[in-house]
Design a protein around this nucleic acid. Structure first.
Length: 240
DNA sequence: AAACAGACCAACCGCCATGCG
DNA sequence: ACGCATGGCGGTTGGTCTGTT
């Protein structure tokens, strides 16, 4: 007899299924969770589930909020600059995604993890020709998704009321000083990071720019697309 | 046009650390 | 000191979409 059948026979499988919902979140669930967090703040995730009337466990609620519903999330495609930071920090820290994410405000560890896995883990295995094709395909896809996202964000902004805006601003103010890419700090520390391995061990300085940087840097990173791990480490250890 | 392969990403799972009674 | 609850993290899975054959 399977576990499922036993559960059905004795009832507990059914009870369990009723207790916690799984799978994709509905718009209504998102609304309930967002509303609850807006009123009571983050934390106590198990209570959130109960008090907000959600049939989701605390873990699921936290994950949904952190990875998808948080108002300070940046969303949209990773910029070349962010990409360089991800590569750089991954070379330094390995798969410590949450640590890497802290240096990229508005990005989640899950997002970075997914990005790295799809863009870099397999990238090294591809031949140059396939790599070009894949990149072109990815860019095309990203462009399309970006358009959709912009439309969605515009709609969301229109729906934001004043209190939402205030909350967002206070969140930004809270996170701003912790951001590791403050130009004045960079000056004070005299950091010159023309090569990834020259970043300070604990103090990180990553000017994010506006995502429109192109030209030389893009050319450099285009070349890096095809580096495998070993080549990448060699490149990192190059004197500038 | 349909089948297939690969890319992408949301969500789940298991483990570990921490805080609290 | 111990056990429990909770939150955080990294790895993995599964569904969907898109491009290729």
């Amino acid at each position: 007899m399977s576990l499922a059948m036993m559960g059905e026979q004795f009832g507990w499988g059914v009870i369990e299924e009723e207790a916690w919902r799984k799978g994709p979140w509905t718009a209504e669930e998102d609304r309930l969770l967002t509303e609850y967090v807006r009123l009571h703040g983050e934390g106590r995730w198990n209570s959130v589930a109960r008090l907000a009337g959600l049939k989701r466990n605390g873990k699921s609620c936290r994950l949904r909020w952190v990875n998808y519903l948080r108002p300070d999330l940046k969303r949209g495609q990773i910029t070349p600059h962010e990409e360089s930071i991800i590569l750089e920090l991954h070379a330094r820290w390995g798969n410590r995604w949450s640590t890497i994410a802290r240096s990229l405000p508005g990005r989640t560890d899950n997002e970075i993890k997914n990005y790295w896995r799809t863009h870099f883990k397999k990238k090294a295995k591809l031949s140059p020709d396939n790599s070009d094709q894949a990149k072109a395909r990815t860019l095309k896809r990203q462009h399309f998704q970006q358009q959709l996202l912009q439309q969605k964000q515009q709609q969301q902004y229109l729906q934001l009321n004043e209190s939402d805006m205030k909350r967002m601003m206070s969140l930004l103010e809270e996170t701003e000083p912790k951001a590791p890419f403050m130009p004045q700090l960079r000056q004070e520390m005299g950091a010159a990071t023309s090569c990834p391995n020259m970043v300070e061990e604990q103090s990180l300085f990553y000017p994010m720019g506006n995502g429109n940087e192109t030209s030389n840097e893009d050319v450099v990173w285009d070349g890096l697309w095809n580096l495998d791990d070993y080549q990448w480490k060699l490149w990192c250890s190059k004197p500038s």
